[in-house]
């Protein structure tokens, strides 16, 4: 599916395109953000992870990484804390990493 889409702008999220005539009417309504549900696999630590990882972006952003190692997930969680100031306490990191790895792992520790 990759090739054909490149010719169009990556504007798949486009909600409304406005010409001068419609502008006033359309804009006054505002837009509705596109919403896509990304279900989480049920498992130990799901609710805790949900609260922590769905706060700033969708779960889809996480799933998009594909199955990864435990070390990968640990690094990612720490990056969210160090770089983007995610409010996750040190003692909660393991639980999130375990959930991610148990449900979205590739079987490799490192």
């Amino acid at each position: 599916m990759k090739k054909v889409t490149m010719l169009a702008l990556t504007a798949t999220m486009l909600v409304t395109s406005l010409n001068a005539e419609e502008k006033k009417v359309e804009v006054q309504k505002g837009i509705k953000m596109p919403y896509m549900a990304f279900p989480m696999k049920p498992g130990k630590g799901m609710y805790s992870t949900k609260g922590k990882c769905n706060m700033c972006h969708s779960w889809g952003y996480v799933l998009n990484q594909g199955p990864q190692s435990k070390a990968f997930w640990r690094k990612k969680v720490i990056k969210m804390i160090d770089v983007f100031q995610a409010p996750i306490r040190n003692e909660d990191i393991d639980e999130v990493v375990e959930y991610l790895y148990a449900n979205y792992g590739n079987g490799e520790e490192g």
């Binding site: 889409t5 490149m6 702008l9 990556t10 998009n64 594909g66 990864q68 990612k76």
Partner: peptide
């Protein structure tokens, strides 16, 4: 052309940080 710096990122291994997309993260207008 408007192209994401990470266009085709999924071709890199091991997985680098960012959205793992193919070559569709571009357009021309």
């Amino acid at each position: 052309v408007l192209q994401c710096g990470g266009n085709s990122r999924s071709a890199f291994h091991p997985t680098p940080g960012g959205i793992q997309w193919g070559p569709g993260a571009m357009g021309c207008a």
